[in-house]
Design a protein around this nucleic acid. Structure first.
Length: 725
DNA sequence: CTAGGGTTAG
């Protein structure tokens, strides 16, 4: 018996070029998956669905079109009895397009298992969608396959391979292939150049471009874009301008990307006039063009001008917002940082890791722990890429908001650490008075063979200064040069003066200043002056104050400190003289100001402040506190009040210090046992310090005060600084 | 005579 099919005439396949086959013509104009599905069902009805050319075209649409659906492609793919290399390749291209490199690799494996040989299209398609991780995982093996299947002289495959090694950070392997590759074209150079940009070796980028010129390879516009980008990063205007002239000579048609790269290069080198000139002449501009201009103005500190361009941009994405936010951050305009971030949220633009780092940095400066916590939750909930930068910013934020536990927890969860992580931990412990922990971190860092830099050493010396580790401090100061070749800068000297002076070695501190290789600034003398206050050395204080006033005649803090010294030494006549000098010269004391964050709102109190809406309650709470605390042994310490007034008035002035107002406000506006976190612009005075200790005991509250230089954690009646500050 | 590589802003 013969089967029906063998009796039937061969199925008539309609012509398969677009002119003659209406289905193929339809597919060519197809715009969406919906349309495609209609065409597909039509082909099933008309029995064209088994026409391999139609099948290929339908799958190709799913794999290549913007709206293409790879699940649909795969379903169709599975129904095809007779596969060919073309379809496999198209599928690989599809997975690359939607960035599913793992599916691509699985498909490639399946292809080999089913005895299809990869051709020279297979590898470029497959590798195009690779991520760093996949490239690391499969790179070597695929390289082997390329050799095994004999594509080591195909330029497309070789370029894809170099590209893949650059992606996984194996620039050495990439260069090796580049060097032995006899099939090189301009794209090979471009891939290699781009690889150096990716690992931030911009000098190498420019070097390679030079080699390319020497070899007489004509660069393409892509070459120019990459090399311009390197010039931008290096702020190498000379090479940038040479490139500008060069591609005019080459008669390369400028396109949007190239012009954007030009704007970026000039803007980054501070040549805003040229950058704006290019922007003006462009036929088409996009969000990148405008953002490059905004960044340019931010770079030269012209943040208000940057804002003008930002406000006039036809569209803004997260990069533009972050660039603008970063502008305010760099000028320490933190409130504007947060305000702009709120606007960004209103505009429904999703922040990413870069944005988070900027906002967290602002939170760290402002001590805005609640917002910082909110950002942390946001990162977790929205799966913002939690890389080492974000982690470092989180650690820094928690420490600078005085939350040591959360900082440590973040540190423990870091998937990867770098020099900045260690440094953030050391500095963080140091400013929170945890000297042992800071130094322990430092030795762990050295054990991990991470090289410390000058900031790391600032933290190390600061840890010694805040905890009175004089001998260790001297030792570290010496070792930074001898062991790590870091020349101490003025901040390191500042830490040493602080360390020596505060521990009572005033003469040695002064000697240290005399032997500094650079000119001591007001911070150096200020450290010595502060030490003179603690150790009641009137003569040296006068000398130090004189030095500062020569540098900064209007430095109000110096007068205040000098007054403090006189008050501490009972030199009332001298104190009056300085007071008079301040009046005559119109020098104002910087008013003490404390911030306390309550339910996401930052409340600000200055000394004697009555402007807060709950001011009356605050003052009556203060009176109540005074009674409670006196029962626990409090008596006012007026030794640091230098106003020429009666004892009772002194007590009253003391009573209204900004941190006391903030603590009282904190007590009436938070639940029992909630931690109070206060940020103060000046140093804490002895009396407020004593009172805060008692508050922590009497009201069973943790009080954290960040003053000008460090943290005080008050718990169970004592302070983390052990009264050494 | 079905398909292919590289690039820009924080």
């Amino acid at each position: 018996m013969l089967s029906i099919s063998s009796l039937s005439p061969p199925i008539f396949l309609p012509p398969t070029n677009t002119q003659q086959n209406p289905t193929l013509a339809l597919l060519e104009t197809c715009k969406s998956m919906d349309q495609l599905k209609q065409i597909h069902s039509q082909t099933i009805k008309t029995a064209q669905a088994i026409n391999p050319i139609i099948q290929n075209s339908i799958i190709a649409f799913c794999c290549t079109h913007q709206t293409g659906d790879m699940l649909y492609a795969r379903k169709l793919f599975d129904t095809i009895p007779q596969l060919n290399p073309f379809i496999w390749n198209t599928m690989l291209k599809g997975y690359s397009r939607i960035y599913c490199p793992k599916n691509g690799v699985l498909m490639y494996v399946e292809m080999l298992e089913r005895d299809f040989k990869p051709d020279h299209y297979t590898f470029p398609f497959l590798m195009k969608g690779f991520t760093r991780d996949v490239a690391l995982e499969c790179g070597r093996e695929l390289h082997g396959h390329v050799v095994k299947f004999g594509f080591d002289s195909n330029v497309f495959v070789q370029n894809a391979l170099i590209h893949m090694y650059c992606l996984s950070g194996r620039i050495d392997m990439a260069h090796e292939i580049f060097d032995v590759n006899y099939a090189r074209d301009v794209v090979t150079w471009n891939v290699m150049i781009c690889g150096y940009n990716r690992v931030k070796k911009y000098d190498e980028t420019i070097k390679l471009f030079g080699e390319m010129e020497k070899k007489g390879v004509l660069p393409s516009s892509v070459t120019f874009v990459s090399v311009l980008s390197a010039c931008s990063k290096l702020k190498n205007l000379e090479t940038g301008m040479r490139l500008h002239n060069y591609f005019k000579e080459c008669k390369i048609e400028p396109n949007l990307i190239l012009e954007n790269a030009m704007i970026d290069m000039y803007a980054s080198c501070g040549e805003m006039d040229v950058a704006l000139g290019i922007l003006k002449k462009m036929k088409k501009r996009d969000v990148i063009s405008w953002t490059a201009v905004v960044t340019g103005f931010v770079n030269i500190g012209q943040v208000d001008l940057a804002r003008k361009y930002f406000d006039n941009m036809p569209e803004r994405d997260n990069v533009s917002w972050t660039a603008m936010i970063d502008g305010y951050l760099r000028l320490n305009r933190f409130k504007e940082v947060l305000a702009l971030f709120r606007e960004m949220q209103k505009a429904k633009i999703k922040p990413d890791g870069f944005t988070m780092v900027s906002i967290l940095t602002a939170c760290a400066h402002l001590g805005a722990l609640e917002l910082g916590e909110w950002i942390n939750t946001y990162i977790e909930k929205n799966k913002v890429k939690n890389d080492v930068f974000v982690g470092n910013a989180l650690i820094d934020m928690y420490f600078k908001c005085g939350n040591v536990e959360k900082a440590q927890r973040t540190y423990e969860q870091m998937p990867r650490m770098d020099k900045f992580t260690w440094t953030a931990m050391i500095v963080g412990f140091a400013i929170n008075g945890l000297g042992e922990e800071a130094l322990d971190m430092f030795s762990q860092m050295l054990n991990a063979s991470v090289k410390p830099d000058e900031v790391t050493y600032t933290g190390v010396l600061c840890a010694c200064a805040h905890t009175g580790k004089v001998d260790e401090g001297r030792k570290f100061f010496a070792s930074m040069t001898t062991q790590h070749g870091i020349e101490p800068n003025v901040a390191h000297y500042g830490c040493m003066i602080d360390l020596l002076g505060r521990s009572g070695n005033l003469i040695e501190a002064h000697e240290f200043i005399k032997n500094m290789p650079m000119k001591p600034n007001s911070i150096i003398w200020g450290a010595l002056l502060g030490a003179c206050r603690v150790h009641k050395d009137k003569d040296m204080a006068e000398m130090a104050a004189k030095q500062i006033l020569e540098l900064e005649p209007n430095n109000g803090a110096v007068y205040v400190l000098l007054c403090n010294v006189y008050a501490a030494c009972n030199k009332w006549e001298n104190l009056r003289e300085v007071r008079k000098m301040m009046m005559d010269r119109g020098i104002k004391k910087i008013p003490g100001c404390s911030l306390i964050e309550m339910n996401g709102v930052v409340h600000e109190f200055v000394a004697g402040d009555q402007s807060h809406p709950r001011s009356r309650e605050v003052y009556s709470k203060l009176d109540e506190m005074r009674e409670d605390l006196e029962l626990a042994g409090y008596s006012p310490d007026t030794s640091e009040v230098f106003l020429d007034i009666g004892e009772e008035e002194k007590e009253s002035a003391l009573h209204q210090h900004s941190e006391k107002l903030a603590i009282a406000f904190g007590l009436i506006s938070s639940g029992p046992r909630a931690t109070l976190r206060i940020i103060k612009n000046l140093r804490m005075c002895v009396d407020c310090h004593r009172m805060a200790k008692l508050v922590s005991k009497v009201y069973d509250r943790e009080v954290v005060v960040r003053d000008k230089t460090r943290f005080h954690h008050f718990r169970y009646g004592s302070c983390s600084c052990k009264d050494y500050w």
